[in-house]
Amino acid sequence: MTRQDKIIKTSVIGIVVNLILVAFKAFVGIVTNSIAITLDAVNNLTDALSSIITIIGVKLANKPRDKKHPYGYGRIEYISSAIIAAIVLWAGVTAFMESWPKIFTPDATNYTTVSLVIIAVAIIVKLALGQYVKRVGKDINSQALVASGSDALFDSILSLSTLLAAIISIYFHISLEGILGVVISIVIIKAGVDMIKEVADSIIGERIDSDLSKKIKKSIRELPEVYGAYDLSLHNYGPEKMSGSVHIEVDDTLTALDIHKLTRALQLKIYEEFTIFLTVGIYARNDKYEDVRNYLEEIISEYEEILEIHGFIVIEEQNLVMFDIIMEFGADREMIENEIREKLKSKYPQFNYEMIDDYDVSD
């Protein structure tokens, strides 16, 4: 079963279950005159709508690439997630506006044993549905499914609160409907805002997952010709469509043909293991000036802000030492670079020094 098929199957299950819950909860809410249960039914209806949008989104996202969109349509999944987040936020705001007046003018409720049993069953069903949808979403890296699953788990907790409020109403004749409705709406609003933030991070561009970055670099270093892997940068065009670039350090004695064979082997290896296409850049390694490199490493060990140096090379005909330097975000880069240059110059004055200011984009 393909990723698309799994998303559609899971979403259809969610739609069917939520529509059944909507029918039962709406009936109970109307019969008992409970605003909390009625709002819970509305929330289930938005969950069903979210599943429908997820299906439409994944269908559009899997359209084949074309001349206008050579990277495909994968990012449509983020758009569908944003729409779902907006629906959840709208539902929360609407629920708040309806619940707030009920705190001051509560309606009389009339719970029955049947209505309480229906609520209890709905809690169990929603808890099971939430765990299932969230698990599938994590397994196939679907942001929309993970959000739907998390929302369903929240719903089960909120339904439990509704059940407790009903029991309190029956035995103590205290109406908590308005207060509970406000609490439910605030939780829904927060869930909507969190979802919007998560989608925004995906669209803006997040840091590469640390585990994935380390696994890719480890895989690259398994090739015997490679001394190190640096500057790994990945870009996604949907949850399952990624490409990027990396620099590898190799012997400066390799021929163009050797490098061509190596980079092709590396690209194939990474694609087979991670389904990621990498463009490969080359750093040449020359151990003739190992003393300069060792001294440089002594210098950078004095700075906590410096995370790494790489790409070290001495171009003899220009008396030029070049290397990349990665510092923490927020470091005083200009000051640190000037200090390093002065220290190097004091010991090896015959060289000029060029530092490439690199950024910490992957672990």
Rank of each mutant, 00 (worst) to 15 (best):
V193P: 03
D107S: 05
Q350D: 08
R207E: 14
K25N: 11
T162A: 09
L49C: 13
L160F: 14
V58L: 01
Y227G: 08
L296K: 13
Y303V: 01
G178Y: 07
T46E: 03
N286K: 10
Y359P: 08
D201Y: 14
A122Y: 07
S175A: 11
E317W: 12
T113Q: 13
I140A: 01
G72F: 06
T2D: 12
D155S: 10
S175L: 10
K190E: 07
L234I: 02
V121D: 06
K134A: 09
T162D: 07
M355G: 01
V280D: 00
Q267P: 00
V250P: 03
E337W: 08
T2M: 09
L153G: 06
M195F: 10
M97A: 14
K241W: 07
V361F: 03
I306D: 04
A331R: 04
S301P: 07
V146P: 06
E273F: 00
I189R: 01
V22M: 05
R293C: 12
E273V: 00
K197Y: 14
L127W: 14
L223S: 14
E305P: 00
D211P: 10
L254S: 01
N110V: 10
D47F: 12
V16N: 02
G330E: 00
S213I: 01
I203K: 00
L212E: 02
Y111D: 00
E290Q: 15
P239E: 03
D107V: 07
P349Q: 13
A284F: 15
S213L: 04
Y295P: 03
T54C: 08
Q318N: 15
E290D: 15
L320S: 09
S362Q: 01
S161R: 09
I8V: 04
T32R: 08
G238Y: 00
L158I: 15
F274A: 00
I119P: 08
V314R: 05
I216L: 08
I55T: 08
S148P: 07
S243F: 13
I56A: 00
E328L: 13
F312E: 01
V199L: 05
I300V: 02
Y271A: 04
K343R: 11
P106Y: 11
L180R: 09
K343Y: 03
K138M: 08
S81T: 10
N33Q: 09
N141H: 07
I309P: 06
S81E: 05
Y78T: 02
L163E: 07
M327K: 07
L127E: 15
A191M: 09
I119C: 06
D287S: 15
Q4R: 13
I340G: 03
G92V: 03
Q350C: 10
M327Y: 01
K6T: 05
K190D: 07
K241E: 10
D66W: 06
E272Q: 14
Y73V: 03
H173F: 11
I170M: 13
A152C: 02
I313N: 07
G130V: 02
A95H: 09
I196Q: 11
V226Q: 06
R285C: 08
E304H: 11
K218N: 15
L266H: 02
T10M: 06
A331E: 00
K59M: 02
E302N: 12
D363L: 14
S243C: 12
